[in-house]
Structure formats: structure tokens, C-alpha cells
């Protein structure tokens, strides 16, 4: 069996860097939601007011993108742990990319709905 010339290093570094970014973003996400937001986001009105702040919206959007990418890379790593053949890696990469786009797209749509005061 022949190995492909891989981009394994890039994948691993991307996962490590997205993970480190997540630690920072998640920290800010927690602190902002539980300690900075007035009232602690217990009511619908508080949530809408919170996400209408441009900095909060940017933070949540960035968090969503990074967490989706990191999760996809993690699932890819698990698949490769189980010996996914090189011939199927392209298909897996494409499926995970579609998954990331769907999750991020849905999350951003939801963010926009809430910022607009939907419901």
C-alpha cells in the first residue's frame, strides 16, 4: 500500500491552533455571558439585548466558526485513527466541510434572527 504525500502536519497544526483559539474564545464566552451580561441572560429580552451588541455578535460568530472547524478536524482525526483508507479521505474531508458550512450557516442565521428580535 502506498501512502499519499500528505498535509498531515497542516491538519494537526490547524487543530492545535483552533483548539488554543477555542480556549481563549470559550473563556471570553463564559465570562461575558455569566459575569458581564447584566442579569445573566435569564430572560429572552436579556438574550436579545446581549447579542445585539456588535462585539458580542462578533465574538459568538467567531466562536461558532472556530468550534465547528475544530470539531470537524477532531472527527477527521478519529476516522483516521480507525485506519480510513487514503482513497476515502477526500470524501471525508468534503463531507466534513459541508457539515461545517451547514453548522456555521445555521448558527449565523440564528444569530441574525435573534438580533432582529425574531418571534
Amino acid at each position: 500500500m502506498t501512502y499519499p504525500t500528505s498535509r498531515a502536519k497542516t491538519w494537526w497544526l490547524l487543530q492545535a491552533l483552533s483548539g488554543l483559539a477555542l480556549v481563549l474564545l470559550l473563556g471570553v464566552h463564559f465570562v461575558a455571558q455569566h459575569y458581564v451580561a447584566q442579569g445573566g441572560l435569564r430572560t429572552y429580552a436579556q438574550v436579545v439585548a446581549y447579542v445585539r451588541h456588535p462585539a458580542v455578535a462578533a465574538l459568538e460568530a467567531a466562536f461558532l466558526v472556530v468550534v465547528a472547524v475544530h470539531a470537524a478536524l477532531g472527527l477527521r482525526a478519529v476516522a483516521l485513527d480507525f485506519g480510513l483508507p487514503a482513497a476515502r479521505q477526500r470524501g471525508l474531508n468534503a463531507a466534513l466541510a459541508v457539515g461545517v458550512v451547514l453548522v456555521v450557516g445555521y448558527g449565523l442565521w440564528l444569530l441574525a434572527q435573534v438580533r432582529g428580535g425574531a418571534g
Binding site: 430572560t43 429572552y44 468550534v67 465547528a68 470539531a71 472527527l75 448558527g107 440564528l110 434572527q113 435573534v114
Partner: peptide, 24 residues
């Protein structure tokens, strides 16, 4: 793996925000 499941669950729950105050 548990956090990947949670991420999807979290987004699913947050859909309630789009349904208005009563659902949330």
C-alpha cells in the same frame, strides 16, 4: 466526541430563541 454531540444539541436548543419569549 461528547462535545461534538453537545454542539449540535446546543444549536438545536437555541432554535427556541427564534420562536420568541414564551418558548425560551
Amino acid at each position: 466526541l461528547a462535545l461534538v454531540v453537545y454542539l449540535l444539541l446546543h444549536l438545536w436548543v437555541l432554535r427556541l430563541l427564534a420562536r420568541g419569549p414564551a418558548a425560551w
